[in-house]
């Protein structure tokens, strides 16, 4: 268990976000789900997540460019690390490790390991 680490899941698919939530909760994280990048901005302030897990589907549409930019700005300002699932390039990506990627399809143990890695926690 990793105490009160908080994860915000941004994924438009109800099925995969539900699986993610259940998996993360069972690994001791507190998880909250947002369907879109816009929705995530509101939750960000309230929930103050340590990690934001964003599925590529949440921001792939070209019209979501400005939403992506504002999401990255708010997320990094809040100090949260971002884990992108799939191939979504986020504007303003930095080389400081605050944004990590995990290719799809992934295994859930892999995902949990990655979250642990980016939060510098080592699983037993």
């Amino acid at each position: 268990m990793f105490g009160e680490l908080k994860v915000l899941i941004v994924d438009p698919s109800e099925d995969t976000s539900e699986v993610l939530r259940l998996v993360l909760e069972r690994h001791g994280f507190r998880a909250v789900v947002a369907g879109t990048l816009g929705e995530s901005a509101q939750i960000l302030e309230r929930f103050r997540p340590d990690v934001i897990v964003v599925d590529e589907e949440a921001g792939q549409h070209p019209s979501a460019a400005s939403a992506r930019q504002s999401f990255v700005n708010s997320a990094l300002r809040s100090g949260a690390k971002i884990l992108v699932l799939g191939r979504l390039s986020l504007a303003g990506e930095k080389e400081d490790g605050s944004i990590a990627h995990l290719g799809k399809p992934y295994h859930y143990r892999q995902l949990v390991g990655k979250i642990n890695e980016i939060t510098e926690l080592v699983a037993d």
Binding site: S13, V19, L22, V23, K104, P105, Y106, H107, Y108
Partner: peptide, 30 residues
Amino acid sequence: IKNILQGIRGGSYLIEMGLAEHNEELIHKG
């Protein structure tokens, strides 16, 4: 196909968790 495969992996993982926890609701969901 990648997204569908991810869905199947998610569902399977829930089934696996459900079986380990003897949680029928989780198995059903998966």
